[in-house]
């Protein structure tokens, strides 16, 4: 009996905590349903008499939101694909082979996380300008895939470390080359980690603003964060539109996270240290 009461207690605590956690997210939805002028209100209600979906109509019908969305999907898709391919192969090399420079590579991957990203912008720009990649998705994709890579490689390496080497040895005995053993046997087993890697690569590109702002100049090419930011003017932000945009931008990532949350728990192996 006491156990039941305890469970009930913990359960209600968690429900309350979850609601509190969700409040800011709901708050954006609330703002998106208000008019610009009702932005400052003392009401805590998310839905008021004045609420409407007007901002959403404006967003989709009167702005280039759909184009931005299409662009963002395109960029994120390619980045995700590249990220997964590169992280899965190099993570594998780092997990399975004891080659010269392996330790150096692993440490420098961690080191890359330590340098303030702001200061990388200027050199990025100079590099892209030299390569004539300004205002092209290629430049953006290279930067996005590479910046997400160090973490993803660590992540993949951590996961491979948990897979017994006998598995690909068995495959090689069965007639696979090293590469086909990797593709046919190891990759399918690593799907939880691949999903996580994909998710992180996707996130890295989906909501990135700063780099996109220096690389993309043609409004036709804008990605969602850039478009969203254009609703924000220093002295006259269209808050309703902005919030509606923010909600729509957040939906795909949130859905992805929710649907993949079970992989998150099993596949996130930043920490998995091989004993």
């Amino acid at each position: 009996m006491s156990k039941k009461i305890e469970t009930l207690f913990i359960f209600s605590f968690l429900v309350l905590f979850t609601l509190a956690t969700l409040y800011p997210a709901l708050n954006i939805i609330g703002i998106s349903l208000r008019t610009d002028d009702a932005f400052q209100t003392r009401s805590l209600a998310l839905w008021t008499a004045e609420s409407s979906f007007r901002s959403y109509f404006t967003l989709f019908l009167e702005t280039d939101f759909l184009t931005w969305m299409k662009n963002s999907f395109l960029v994120s898709f390619v980045v995700t694909l590249t990220g997964v391919v590169l992280a899965s192969t190099s993570g594998y090399a780092l997990s399975r082979f004891n080659f010269m420079g392996r330790r150096a590579v692993l440490s420098s991957l961690l080191m890359t996380q330590m340098f303030p990203a702001t200061m990388l912008l200027l050199p990025f720009f100079i590099l892209l300008a030299k390569l004539k990649l300004i205002n092209s998705y290629l430049g953006l994709i290279i930067i996005y895939s590479s910046t997400a890579l160090p973490f993803c490689i660590w992540q993949m390496k951590g996961y491979y470390d948990t897979i017994p080497a006998a598995l690909e040895e068995a495959a090689r005995m069965d007639g696979c080359s090293r590469f086909s053993a990797f593709i046919k046997v190891i990759l399918p087993v690593s799907s939880p980690a691949l999903v996580i890697t994909a998710l992180f690569s996707f996130m890295a590109s989906w909501s990135e603003y700063v780099v996109a702002a220096i690389v993309l100049q043609d409004p036709e090419l804008y990605t969602l964060p850039l478009g969203l930011k254009s609703f924000q003017a220093s002295l006259a932000t269209q808050w309703g539109l902005y919030a509606a945009g923010a909600v729509v931008v957040s939906i795909p990532v949130t859905i992805l996270f929710i649907s993949l949350s079970r992989f998150l728990v099993s596949g996130l192996t930043v920490g998995s240290v091989k004993g």
Binding site: P164, A166, L167, S177
Partner: peptide
């Protein structure tokens, strides 16, 4: 190993 025409049974089975 793929070309040695040798088959191996592993300790932990190593089933796919």
């Amino acid at each position: 190993p793929s070309k040695r025409e040798v088959a191996m049974v592993f300790q932990n089975y190593a089933l796919y």
